[in-house]
Simulated scan of single mutants.
Amino acid sequence: MDLGYINGKFVQLDERVIPIEERGHQFGDGVYEVIQCYNGQPFMLEEHLQRLLESCEAIKLPISETLEDFRTLILTGIEKAELQYGKVYLQVTRGIAVRNHPFPDVPVSISMTLKDTEPLAEGYRVNGVHAITHDDERWAKCYIKSLNLLPNILAKQEAQEAGCFEAILVRNGFISEGTSSNIYMVKDGAVITTPLSNHILAGITRMAVIQAAEELNIPFVERYFSPKELLEADEVFMTSTLVEVLPIVKIDGTVIDKGVPGEITKKLYMQYQELKKKALV
Rank of each mutant, 00 (worst) to 15 (best):
Asn7Gly: 14
Phe10Val: 03
Glu15Phe: 01
Val17Tyr: 05
Ile18Val: 04
Glu21Met: 06
Glu22Trp: 00
Phe27Leu: 15
Gly28Asp: 11
Asp29Ala: 06
Val31Glu: 06
Tyr32Trp: 07
Gln36His: 12
Cys37Ser: 13
Gly40Pro: 09
Glu47Lys: 01
Glu47Val: 00
Gln50Asn: 06
Arg51Pro: 08
Ser55Ile: 00
Ile59Glu: 06
Ser64Lys: 08
Ser64Gln: 10
Leu67Met: 12
Asp69Tyr: 00
Ile74Arg: 04
Thr76Gln: 10
Glu82Gln: 09
Leu83Asp: 10
Gln84Trp: 01
Lys87Asn: 15
Val88Trp: 02
Leu90Thr: 10
Val92Arg: 04
Arg94Thr: 07
Ala97Ile: 06
Val98Lys: 09
His101Arg: 08
His101Asn: 10
Phe103Met: 15
Val106Arg: 01
Val106Asp: 07
Pro107Leu: 10
Ser109Phe: 08
Met112Ala: 13
Thr113Glu: 14
Leu114Met: 15
Leu120Val: 05
Gly128Tyr: 01
Gly128Val: 00
His130Trp: 05
Thr133Leu: 03
Asp135Lys: 00
Asp136Pro: 11
Arg138Phe: 07
Ala140Glu: 14
Lys141His: 15
Pro151Arg: 03
Leu154Asn: 13
Ala155Gly: 12
Lys156Ala: 15
Lys156Ile: 09
Glu158Phe: 04
Ala162Gly: 10
Leu169Met: 09
Arg171Leu: 07
Asn172Val: 00
Phe174Ile: 01
Thr179Cys: 05
Ser180Pro: 00
Ile183Arg: 00
Met185Thr: 02
Val186Ile: 03
Lys187Tyr: 04
Asp188Phe: 00
Ala190Arg: 01
Val191Ser: 11
Ile192Phe: 04
Thr194Ala: 05
Thr194Arg: 02
Asn198Gly: 03
Asn198Pro: 06
Ile200Gly: 10
Ala202Pro: 05
Ile204Glu: 11
Arg206Thr: 11
Met207Arg: 13
Met207Glu: 15
Val209Pro: 13
Ile210Cys: 08
Val221Glu: 14
Tyr224Leu: 13
Phe225Trp: 03
Lys228Arg: 05
Glu232Gly: 04
Ala233Gly: 10
Asp234Ser: 08
Val236Cys: 11
Met238Val: 13
Ser240Gly: 13
Val243Asn: 09
Val245Ser: 12
Val249Ile: 07
Lys250Cys: 14
Gly253Ala: 07
Gly253Leu: 02
Thr254Ile: 08
Val255Ile: 10
Asp257Glu: 13
Gly262Arg: 03
Thr265Ser: 15
Tyr269Gln: 14
Tyr269Glu: 14
Met270His: 04
Gln273Pro: 12
Glu274Met: 06
Lys276Cys: 10
Lys276Val: 11
Ala279Glu: 06
